[in-house]
């Protein structure tokens, strides 16, 4: 049974169910699994809890699933770019659990490594610490954070071979490896599927053991904040 599927819909077939927890890679609109998000929209799966650093913008990225009201709860560190998100949150239609960005990444990584909880000094003495166990190590307080064990991980990589060995590109790597690791099943969309052996084994960013299904797709790769300098300044 190979890992390569012909479409995002086929790659998700049999994996989606209402009320599930999905971990998604990406930072802002950079390195997001845009085709898999569209396929989840088309599948109509509801009451989703989505762990993702951001929530996309109104009409792109995870914002697409907010517009169709498929998301019940977001676990994120920053959601400032999405008006529909704010509207649903302020009207009580959408639950939101803020996680510090590093805590969110580590919750994913830890779960993927079989670690159900870890202590961190991030958030000690803030609202993030409320209700959490505090433990003192060497005179410093730390709070207990729990791993995120997702039913499904959806991630985006640059290249994959047919065994699922992945290579990411520049800052599009971001949350994709930790998200991939924490999924019971991980589906990855890539720009290119390359022949086995064409990626130097020393240059693989995430080994295929974490990847169960692969689909190749076209990517819009929208830029959120296009910022340039003038050539005269050079």
């Amino acid at each position: 049974m190979g890992k390569i599927y012909n479409s995002a819909a086929e790659a998700l077939d049999g994996l989606l169910f209402d009320g599930m927890l999905i971990a998604a890679g990406g930072f802002g609109l950079c390195g997001i699994p845009e085709n898999l998000i569209s396929a989840i929209k088309d599948a109509g799966t509801k009451d989703l809890t989505v762990a993702s650093n951001n929530a996309g913008v109104d009409d792109f990225g995870l914002g697409v699933l907010l517009q169709t009201r498929q998301v019940k709860k977001m676990i994120s560190s920053y959601v400032g770019e999405n008006d529909e998100f704010m509207r649903q949150y302020l009207s009580g239609e959408l639950e939101l659990e803020f996680n510090p960005q590093g805590t969110l990444a580590e919750r994913m990584r830890a779960a993927g490594c079989g670690i159900p909880g870890f202590y961190t000094k991030t958030g000690v003495g803030t609202v993030i610490a409320e209700g959490k166990e505090v433990k003192n190590f060497n005179g410093q307080d730390y709070i207990l954070e729990e791993g995120i064990f997702a039913d499904l991980a959806i991630v985006k990589a640059w290249k994959a071979d047919d065994t699922g060995n992945l290579v990411f590109r520049k800052t599009a790597r971001n949350f994709n490896p930790p998200a991939a690791m924490c999924g019971k099943t991980c589906v990855v969309e890539v720009e290119e599927i390359v022949p086995r052996g064409s990626i130097d084994p020393d240059h693989i960013h995430l080994p295929g053991i974490y990847v169960h299904r692969i689909v190749q797709g076209d990517h819009e790769k929208r830029i959120e904040q296009r910022t340039v300098r003038q050539r005269e300044e050079a």
Partner: peptide, 16 residues
């Protein structure tokens, strides 16, 4: 420089 933006290369403020 204008025209050299790469969507895979952004900072934490999402700027190219």
């Amino acid at each position: 420089f204008d025209g050299d933006e790469d969507p895979d290369l952004i900072n934490a403020g999402k700027q190219t």
